[in-house]
Amino acid sequence: MLFLRYYLWIAPHALLGFLLIWFLRRGLYRQSPIFCAFVIFELVKFLALFTISRVLSPSATDVYRWIFVFGLGVSALLTLGVAYELANELLLSHSSLAGVLRPLLRWGAAALILLAAFSSAMLPGVSVARVANVFQVLDFSSSLFLAGLLVTLFLFGKVLHISWRSWPTGVALGFGISACIDLATAALRAEFGSSDFIASDVTQMAAFHVCVVVWLVYLFLPEGAPKFVGRGLEKSDLEFWDQELQRMVRR
């Protein structure tokens, strides 16, 4: 179990480092600057926490906790930034949709924040009086918000028949998997208390591992233009549309 915990702590961050190198080499940081900042912050946070736990432990437990909670807060903010970046790239970049979808997404985000705040207060044994509880509230709220926002994004894309490019889809999918598992485990942690901490931690770390692997897979997927066969609109179709237009012009 100890090996598994260390593996799930170190391996995703090692892969994240590898992803960052390729990300920077391909110049994708220009397209997704907030995602790039998120990856760098995650790596810095990991290095700081790992160093504290290996070098300063056990005298620095409080320092570790505070850095962990502070890191979680910053990560949550950066994740919301990435969600905004994804919404911008996947939906709002279509000029005709921006005007209608922007307020819808804004109201959706506001509703999700309210829901997250309300739900956090409803969970048993949670208050902001202690560091661990601050962590629980942050963990649960940001996961609920992100999962809700990503489901909304995917739903809009499906309903509107928008085909997405490979890389942003991969980022959204990775975050989606991680946020949904985090939401479920954060809720379980609130229910079962500290006895369940290790199991929920392992599950969340495994979800993050899957998330990083998904990003890597999508980073290396070939990004070619979709292949179409056939001629498209033929003469008979054009004549039909022509008649439609003539009728319209005559009106």
Partner: peptide, 8 residues
């Protein structure tokens, strides 16, 4: 969601 192409 993937842009897959198709038969026009």
């Amino acid at each position: 969601h993937h842009a897959t192409g198709g038969n026009l």
